[in-house]
Computed example of a mutant assay.
Amino acid sequence: MKEKLSIAALLPHAGLAGGVRRFVELGNRLQKRGHDFRIYMRETKKPDWIECAVPVLPLGKLSERTHDVVMCGDCGLLESMAGAPAKKRIAMIIGERYASKYRAFLERHPDALAVANSGRWNEYLPGVKAIAIPGGVNTAQFRPGPRGEGPFAINVVGRLDKKLEAVDLVLAAFKKLNWKDARVRIVADRPSRLPIRYFLLRKRIEQVSGTDQAKLVEYYQASDVSVTMERTAGWSNPTAEAMACGIPVICTRCGTTDFADETTALVVPVDDVAALVAALRRTREDPAAARARAAAALQRIRNFDWERVVDGLEAVFR
């Protein structure tokens, strides 16, 4: 019988975010496998947008017991992890944006183990010793479903007012295409003000809440293409989720290199609106090829189910 471990994860908040999803999904599964998994935060409110079956405790209680493993991906909490009584401390490398901070932490704490959520971690942390365990997707939740009736639909997950998510680029491409019979759906935790330059498109742009995870799945399923133009990301949840729902995908390399290539997606350069316009046109004008890429993507992304991620982490824990 496998040893049951005491595992702690540090989070900065309980809001809608990829890092929160990662630790909650992992915690739920590790708990089911018999481990004692706890989340520590400055606030003790459980995430209300995703099922969270593990206890959430105040960060101040972290030092009250010795854990077998303490994990943290937030740069603002890494030193809290370093000071916690634990047999093993794991810095979860969640992307290139904070590469210098991860490097500095690992230099100060050489006993900490680095686990990256993307296979391309060595591009932005050369010389650092790390183990790659890519992110995951809940394939039982995010799955293909009926498309339903309606105009050609472009789905994009992210906020207009978040520069790194680059949702504005999707609207810029949509404006250039001037498709009167198509729609853009922006899925975010809250709506943002539509820039005045897109005022004439307002009746073809829908902003909806993505906090209800069942509705989020329906939005993917009701789309003809999902677009993610992120400027930086460790693991692109929206791209992985769209693939798991069987939807054709257009994305950048940011957070997608483990599963997106010419057979599974149309990969465009960061900030390249012209390339995005061409990719959208290609997707719409050749639906058979788009469906073939989506089918290949669906098969590939199933290799990244959270259960497999947990298998990899358990091996690291021991």
Rank of each mutant, 00 (worst) to 15 (best):
R318P: 00
R120E: 11
T252S: 03
D261V: 10
H13E: 13
L11W: 06
L171E: 02
A116F: 12
A140G: 10
R103D: 06
G119A: 14
P110T: 07
A8Y: 00
E206K: 14
G255K: 04
A99M: 09
R120F: 07
I94N: 14
L5A: 06
Q213S: 13
L11S: 14
I205H: 02
P151N: 10
A278S: 14
L57I: 09
V273S: 07
V156A: 15
E123G: 05
L276N: 07
M41Q: 12
P126G: 05
I50C: 03
A130H: 14
I90D: 05
K175P: 08
E96V: 12
V56D: 01
F304R: 02
P55I: 06
A242R: 01
P144M: 01
N28E: 04
A279P: 06
R281K: 13
A275F: 01
R190T: 11
W49I: 13
V157H: 10
F37M: 00
R308D: 03
P47L: 05
V184T: 02
D161R: 04
D286N: 14
A132I: 13
E285P: 11
I205L: 01
F105C: 00
S6W: 00
L280D: 11
E314H: 02
T283A: 04
F317W: 04
L59Y: 05
A114H: 09
R204C: 08
R42D: 10
F174A: 09
A132W: 00
N122G: 06
V309A: 05
F152R: 02
S63E: 10
G95H: 01
V268W: 06
A214D: 12
V277E: 06
L201M: 05
D168Y: 05
T239C: 06
L164Q: 08
P12D: 08
P238M: 01
R103N: 02
N155H: 00
E230T: 15
M229K: 01
S236P: 06
A53M: 12
G158W: 13
T264G: 08
T239S: 15
C245P: 02
G127E: 12
I247S: 04
D271V: 12
S223R: 13
R33Q: 07
V273H: 03
V187N: 00
R204W: 10
K129C: 15
H13G: 06
G158M: 06
K61N: 00
R97E: 12
K61H: 12
R318V: 12
G150K: 08
D68L: 02
E307S: 15
C251G: 00
N117I: 15
M41N: 15
T228F: 02
D271W: 12
M92L: 15
V128R: 11
P110D: 03
R253I: 13
C72P: 09
E206V: 15
R185D: 07
